[in-house]
Design a protein around this nucleic acid. Structure first.
Lengths: 335, 335
DNA sequence: CTGAAAGCGCTTACAG
DNA sequence: CTGAAAGCGCTTACAG
């Protein structure tokens, strides 16, 4: 059997109350007693029971993290940042994955609520189109913060990358390099971040009085055949794009490999810019220019915001919806 | 305030005991009552409190996962596999990272124990050289399973990749391609998996009566300057290796890029084989031959084992220490 | 088939 | 500075 506060109390012939206070460094307890208790606890290999304490204090010292998948390096890094802040606060985190599935998302949220987490950092599944399940969060007074993927119509803090600005900067960079016919290979159409990057693309074209060519924009899903899309877009050498801005580094890399197989030189014939600044950038040849986010900082910011809500601290309006600016990391694929 | 079993009981003018039994589908409760309770629970938006239930039943329905870092694709995939099994069992998991740091590892284990997880899947930090902190796990009767990185001297189940066989197969493959002077760029010397891959390398050389050349073996840490190591190993074209087997795909890719900058052709001058079969393999040029593990299956196996221990079910001796065989995925870097 | 009562391991207002 | 007592939300042996 595990050692409890009561066992320590009996061993020391004092009351459980005193042991509890000593262990929690309560000011009213004498140093003498504290020392004795600490020594005995160590000797008896006492391990605090957070569960019992949580039940009593109605604070579980835990938060939930729900992301589409943990295997994406973006989310993995974000979790890194979140966990740093979480353990600084003496909390622990329960991480769940929705696998981009709506029903899974509902189940996971329910499970987090039953674990009585004090708050949730939430990145909605690409599959999710309705948001009633999130209203239950509000109903249960469980604070939450949207991370990267944001459901409309909630008055909660949000942390996201400024995808619009990222798209804009990527395309502006290509324009400044003298590219005239800039294509866009977009992500899943449902995803807000796909739309924002696309809108940044559009805005840059408009700003520089470029014409928008509809044949040069295609939205894709991860499991699609991208090769065929590239092939089609670049089949006519006289009429093809001279630059390609993609939704992700993965798409950019696939495009580069395909374009090279088609006999094009990168960046001479086609400049390519990706998104994410992943570890792939410095491996593909030529090295890939990419828009960088800062997932770790974003994760930290989301956790900080969540703790402010949990602690009922005031969040200045300008901090409530944070957008993290992106930068274009220029490499050989667009020089 | 959150709705409790008591609230439902009062609303229905029955006892909390009955509500509890109805919610848990106890056989003694009439269908009639069960239906009423279910309806009321839904109407009142009742969310079970796992914390309270856990305190009472002394089962937390949670397990802990402690890995060096979540951002490695190997561990991220393993967690994927673990979580699948964990939620099949109606459990949830608390994921912690040691960041390869010994003291962190101790803290995280303590925290998992205080969360009263029913078991832990554990991958020790590369930093960890002594294992007393793991003895406390045994002292607290918290079952655990070693995953991928195994501490010596514990009678607990283990799941690992057969790194020895992986190293052997990689080198055997190079030998069969006619390579004569096979070098090895190893991982952190402290890590068991580094040693095993190296021993597989040695064993293959011995099996085929190759001489072992000590200048052709270097162990490295992730933060070292690998370029200099490669440069030195390949500085003398007359005396250099004609093949390189590396501890990881990252090392292999770095090597390929460096060797290409040195003017060598891969695989004509040097064949390269990595380890991990990561997403880098099909991006680097030439595409990288690599030894593949199966992290998802390994994660599933570890979780299955842990649940067997938790449930006191018998583990047949041949299942207790599982090694997952590897395969060499042949690509252009060694053709 | 249902209920009253005890208790899981803690914390804390109250009393001294 | 310390203790006795109540209670967090559940489950379950016992009784009927």
């Amino acid at each position: 059997m595990a050692v409890t506060i009561k066992d320590i109390a009996t061993a020391l012939r004092i009351s459980p109350s005193t042991v509890s206070r000593a262990l929690n460094d309560h000011p009213n307890i004498s140093e003498e007693t504290k020392k004795q208790v600490a020594a005995k606890a160590k000797e008896m290999k006492y391990q605090a029971n957070f569960i019992a304490a949580g039940l009593r204090t109605k604070r579980s010292n835990s938060i939930g993290i729900l992301v589409p998948h943990i295997t994406s390096s973006f989310f993995a890094s974000a979790i890194d940042g979140i966990q740093k802040i979480v353990s600084d606060h003496g909390y622990y985190s329960i991480i769940c994955q929705s696998n981009e599935d709506y029903h899974n998302e509902i189940d996971q949220i329910r499970s987090l609520l039953s674990c009585k987490v004090e708050g949730i950092i939430l990145s909605i599944a690409s599959d999710t189109k309705v948001f009633e399940h999130l209203e239950t969060l509000e109903a249960y007074d469980t604070p939450f913060v949207f991370f990267d993927r944001i459901a409309p119509g909630f008055d909660t803090p949000t942390v996201e990358a400024n995808d619009f600005a990222g798209g804009f900067q990527a395309v502006e960079h290509l324009i400044k390099r003298g590219r005239k016919r800039i294509a866009h290979l977009g992500g899943p159409g449902l995803l807000g971040i796909s739309k924002s990057r696309y809108e940044g693309y559009l805005e840059a074209l408009r700003t520089y009085d470029y014409e928008v060519n509809e044949d040069f924009v295609v939205f894709t899903d991860p499991d699609e055949k991208h090769d065929a899309i590239i092939e089609k877009m670049f089949e006519d050498p006289k009429n093809m794009p001279d630059a390609l801005f993609t939704f992700s580094d993965e798409l950019a890399v696939e495009s580069i490999l395909k374009l090279k197989r088609m006999g094009y030189n990168i960046p001479r014939d086609v400049s390519v810019v990706g998104f994410g600044n992943s570890n792939l950038c410095e491996i593909v040849e030529p090295n890939l220019t990419s828009v960088t986010h800062e997932p770790i900082k974003m994760g930290e910011a989301a956790a900080e915001l969540l703790f402010k809500v949990i602690q009922n601290r005031h969040i200045p309006p300008h901090q409530k919806n944070q957008k993290f600016d992106s930068r274009v990391i220029i490499r050989d694929s667009s020089r």
